[in-house]
Design a protein around this nucleic acid. Structure first.
Lengths: 236, 236
DNA sequence: GACAATACCGGCTATCCGGCTTGTTTTTAG
DNA sequence: CTAAAAACAAGCCGGATAGCCGGTATTGTC
């Protein structure tokens, strides 16, 4: 964020070490996320990150002794940002069914966000680096489990059951969103996105109708309207 | 495949240049696919490929002057193998509806095959290398379009229409299979796969019922039986 | 059999990356 | 006020990589 001196007379605002540390750390982590998003895992070098962060390589070295430390910290940071974003977004929808219904669009949005792409990049990139893989796998496992709980909670809060097809549908949406997000960066295909979201929402409403009765599900027209609204709001 | 001398007396079977070329080329391309699958895009170096192929670096240089040439050729080779495999597998099912129904499982299978993983690795990896991206993008676009036609053809041959939800469902299945395949290599989760396939098949049958009437769709029990059969046949 | 073309070999180098190390500035503790 | 500690800066080095090149062996053509 906009830092450095903004105080009037004081040529240098005295900053405590903890603040300096936190600020530099955040700059570096944000730069790493940006680098992963824009250039992909393979192009993320210490040099590039330091440059993007506006920080010397020595400072990076100080905060993240190894590249692995940097990437692990970045994934943690990115996922906590994502979680906060999800909570904030879902709070805009009324609890229960509306909030549950917001999840599919949210999955595709978060997958396209810099933080989401960063996590995906590391996830696939760590296949090329066993050491990084060892360091990141427990974290990824935790993330998957955590997201699974998140899904289950909202399913139940909507008065629904996490049946086989419900789990399958949410998992499919998550995976598809991930693959599409990376793809769309080099081969954007808005029609594809619209179709996928429509199909997933049809399936979602079908499951709702199965569990609670047709009167709780959206009609085909409502689904299409919902999709059009989401399509217009989407900026990619 | 098993090459080299198998002739009895002749200490050196005279091989024509075209054969030597083709053989070496195939060895290198196969090795590249293996390398991409096992070690991931980032770890695929010329050295590694040459070693896996049992070929000198000079020979590689001769056939593929640059790394980009190698990867582009590998993607072409892998996709043509995939196409051949798809055709061969689908011919085992009766034309029409059974053949159409085989596509979802096939998508997940091919995504997990070395050839499928290789294509996915290059697809994501080229984000880190603009030059490679430029070289590979038209190919990827063609592949996507070609696969789209393949899907459309089988939809129609089953007497179905490529409606919005049909397109969305197939696209979702394709994307999800891709993400799952890479994921499953480091975080295998058989339950997830089963759930996703089940949900997709439920959706598929629902679309069939919508278009042709419920009597053409499988029952819930049939779907589950089909999934169990696929789950047992699957070796990952 | 002579010459050309192709397949193949492996050392060389410029470049870049990650990590180390030494030096400088700012903050904090006594 | 002083000394230690922490934050920051940046030059350096071993290692690895992609591409290049001179040279050899095999195959094709006349």
């Amino acid at each position: 964020m906009a830092d450095t001196e903004e105080k009037s007379g004081a040529r240098r605002e005295r900053r405590r070490n903890v603040d300096r540390s936190a600020s530099t750390r955040a700059q570096i982590l944000d730069a790493t996320i940006r680098a992963l998003t824009q250039f992909g895992f393979g192009a993320v070098t210490n040099n590039l990150v330091a440059e993007l962060a506006g920080v010397s390589r020595g400072a990076m070295m100080h905060h993240f002794p190894t590249r692995i430390d940097l990437l692990v910290a970045t994934v943690e940071y990115a996922y906590s940002n994502l979680t906060a974003y999800r909570v904030a977004q879902l709070e805009k929808a009324k609890p229960g069914m509306p909030r549950f219904r917001a999840i599919i669009d949210l999955a595709f949005d978060t997958a396209r966000m810099p933080e989401g792409l960063a996590v995906s990049e590391v996830r696939t990139g760590c296949r090329s680096d066993p050491e990084l893989g060892d360091a990141v796998t427990p974290l990824m496992t935790h993330i998957s489990a955590d997201y699974g709980k998140f899904l289950g909670r909202h399913v139940r809060e909507a008065g629904l059951e996490p049946t086989l097809d419900m789990r399958g549908m949410t998992a499919t949406a998550t995976m598809a969103a991930r693959a599409l997000a990376i793809d769309s960066f080099s081969h954007p295909n808005p029609v594809l996105i619209d179709n996928m979201l429509y199909a997933l929402k049809v399936q979602r409403e079908r499951i709702i109708a199965d569990q609670l009765g047709p009167e709780h599900a959206m009609t085909a027209e409502q689904i299409k309207a919902d999709c059009q609204k989401a399509s217009k709001r989407r900026r990619w």
